[in-house]
Design a protein around this nucleic acid. Structure first.
Lengths: 245, 245
DNA sequence: GGGTGTGAAGCTATTCACAGCC
DNA sequence: GGCTGTGAATAGCTTCACACCC
């Protein structure tokens, strides 16, 4: 069994890997930079410093420069970044220069809202199909598309070359839908159902849980002001203990 | 050095601030644990090991134990955690044992979906008011509530003791709405508008940008399969350089 | 002068592995 | 024997500060 052999495995290796290996934290911020750059384009600005761009993206400038340095050397020292050029480079890196047909599964309130969401279309995400298991919904028009029945999921994915699926079903249906999407060839999934999904190693999965965000806010809110107002007997006892040491 | 510093053993200083200072990363996972615990309760399970709970929350067990250790010592060595007890403790820590009236501003597709979202109510978040600037919407019933006009925002926040606001307006209106919420006394804001919001230091702010999640998926998707298909001249040159260098 | 790109330092988070307790 | 709680090690991310280039 494993001793406590710490194992050096590799100590000094240049290993700079410039054209790959963008840190995940950086990837998550690239869309922010794109948004800020789009706003600058609209304002007719054509050159920005890292300071200014960072400001409008809500990050600090050192972080911005470090992030961009992972993509390449797109700025000019003493000048800044060309807004249009930088925007194109980041778009390409993220993959927004290509068309991404998307299927939304689960056309309840949330699914309909997503189908109508303008922010998708404006970034190259084309809602190509809407799917629901409810026969009462299939055939209806939503966001200019006819809602299809879940039975046709596999056919739609294949015919429309869909690589990205959005799950907006109730939690109980989500894993089954997910499995079918994966089996049909979808390799990226965005999950809005409040449940844990299992996907194969190679499939990309991200989740948005609306109530989790509220809970995180509530945690901090409670600490700011609320806690004393709603002190339970248990809390009081604990607090007393803590004070006593 | 420090191969086996065995001296300090415990030090036992109340100074460790047990009832404060939960790392942000831990806070963000507490809702996951609550979700997993709720599922276990539904299944009638009343004791779990960190291994099992971690599995159902989708994290690794060392991380789970470390996270829980920041809240207190709620497990039993050799046994595991009492499901109901642990759930109550975490709920209390997050603040879900109290009622959180919430106002949703912007009752478009997304706002309506949020108003109807069952996941809020089930966690103690009560949608107390719906507000929109569009006179065509005000007075209509949505999710059992009458949509109010933005003019009444301040009054509603005060009368309903609202501490949490959800912004689901178009991007251009978001900052103005945000300012009014803050001025009215709201101290936590969840922003769905795809724009950067400025709030005072003490106000909690979280954001959900639906298109950002898709963009992150697209980034990885492109690397999995798409990139070669859409290779630009620039990329080709870069690639060639990388191969050479 | 001005501002990018980047080693180095500092910080936070994750994982390991085991002492301590049931 | 089993499992928690936790120091220690590691990995990853952020920030600093300045060399370098325009």
């Amino acid at each position: 069994m494993t001793r406590r052999t710490r194992v050096p495995h590799e100590a000094a290796h240049p290993d700079t890997t410039p054209i790959r290996g963008v840190p995940e934290a950086t990837v998550a911020r690239l869309p922010l930079y794109l948004r800020a750059l789009a706003a600058l384009v609209d304002r007719g600005v054509d050159t920005v410093s890292s300071e200014e761009l960072a400001e409008s993206a809500g990050v600090n400038s050192a972080k911005l420069r470090k992030d961009l340095s992972h993509l390449g050397s797109y700025g000019t020292r003493g000048v800044g970044y060309d807004v249009n050029y930088l925007r194109r480079q980041i778009s390409r890196e993220v993959g927004l220069t290509q068309d991404w047909p998307v299927v939304i599964v689960g056309i309840g309130n949330l699914g309909q809202a997503l189908a109508n969401y303008a922010g998708f279309a404006s970034r190259g995400f084309r809602v190509a199909a809407l799917v629901d298991a409810d026969p009462a919904l299939t055939g209806k028009q939503v966001a200019g598309l006819t809602v299809q029945h879940t039975d046709d999921l596999e056919r739609l994915v294949a015919q429309l070359s869909i690589a990205i699926g959005v799950i907006a079903t109730p939690a109980v249906a989500a894993q089954q839908v997910c499995d079918r999407l994966v089996a049909a060839g979808v390799t990226s999934i965005l999950n809005f159902a409040p449940t844990l999904l299992h996907v194969p190693e190679q499939v990309g999965l991200r989740k948005v849980d609306l109530s989790i965000e509220l809970q995180i806010l509530a945690y901090h809110e409670q600490r700011r002001s609320g806690a004393p107002l709603a002190l339970t007997a248990e809390q009081a006892a604990e607090l007393a203990q803590a004070v006593r040491g």
